[in-house]
Design a protein around this nucleic acid. Sequence first.
DNA 1: AACGAAACCTACCGGTCTACAGGTAACGGG
DNA 2: CCCGTTACCTGTAGACCGGTAGGTTTCGTT
Lengths: 193, 193
Amino acid sequence: MPYGELMNARVRSEERRAEIVRAALEVIAERGYRGASLAAVAERVGLTQQGLLHYFPTKDALLVAVLTERDQWDAVPDTQWRVDLLVSLVEYNAMRPGIIQTFSALLGESVTEGHPARGYFTERYAKVRENMAAVLRAEYGDQLPNGLTPERTAPLLVAVMDGLQYQWLLDPESVDMPGAFRDFLTLLGENPH
Amino acid sequence: MPYGELMNARVRSEERRAEIVRAALEVIAERGYRGASLAAVAERVGLTQQGLLHYFPTKDALLVAVLTERDQWDAVPDTQWRVDLLVSLVEYNAMRPGIIQTFSALLGESVTEGHPARGYFTERYAKVRENMAAVLRAEYGDQLPNGLTPERTAPLLVAVMDGLQYQWLLDPESVDMPGAFRDFLTLLGENPH
DNA sequence: AACGAAACCTACCGGTCTACAGGTAACGGG
DNA sequence: CCCGTTACCTGTAGACCGGTAGGTTTCGTT
């Protein structure tokens, strides 16, 4: 362990937390949030359930960490999103079923009453819709080739991405997620640029 | 109870089962399948948890009953689906959040490993995609105005319906589900009929 | 070398969950 | 009127759950 001695406690603690969050992502993908037990997450990082609670005092605290990690993940630094980057994103997602499964499961759960991720997803989708509207406006201007505005098209764009994910997760052989997404983009009309 | 005396045991049993399934739909909408306890469903129909198990011997059996009820529900008798009927369906759904919430929650859970509804949804989506392709073909012929085939458009249609449901459930005020769906249909091109 | 904090652990509590076992009361057909 | 079936009930097993209490070891700092 050449780096071990150089690490201070602070860094090691952060790494442990990141490890736990990663394990939590996996377990949530497999069993959902309600079905994910702290013990199962702990076991995956070689801890007891109580040892895990030392890092995250409650189950909800762990979920919060999972959600904020995701926020950092898909916040593309500086660069503005473009439509062709969305295609790349979908292609990238199609190679990482785990992450998609985690957040598809969480999204499904979040519509139930009192779910701890509900507020997160509500706010997130509001932001994402705004973001997508801006992307579309940058690409097409105030009016899409088919006559719709970016604001009215954005929810459709988001819906297609999410909906395709469910179909693809359930039956990857039958659904070409990136291909279908490109099909949707052609539906929006020819890029004027 | 004028009809009470005319009812035989068979009919009364069927009614009780239907009552239970209805209650299960509600509880699943509120807490998801994993979060829905037999006791909560039982209480809603005035039974003990063990009394409920008399009608459905396991929790999975109850889920199966819920899923088959849904199949009967959206099997439109005889009449072939048409695109304008889809709009009506979405409008109708927008007035019944409960049902949407139940099956959105179930869909989300179903992508997790070993979920008892996974097979159901996989098969269901295969059928629905076929169905939608047929609807599109009846409406537009072998090629949509934008050049896509019905088979390639069907997954998009399904994805939009599902994806919009999640956005709408999370924030009904911000998302006009039927309006957005109509927007999507205009994206498909003008109806040649 | 001493000390205080961080990083775990064991033990345990109260609750909830599905399911099984077995009992009883009502009921309807012969 | 009897008798088998249906429709429940109580009791309980067995398992997991999140969380608390409190201990002990490890380790960096002084």
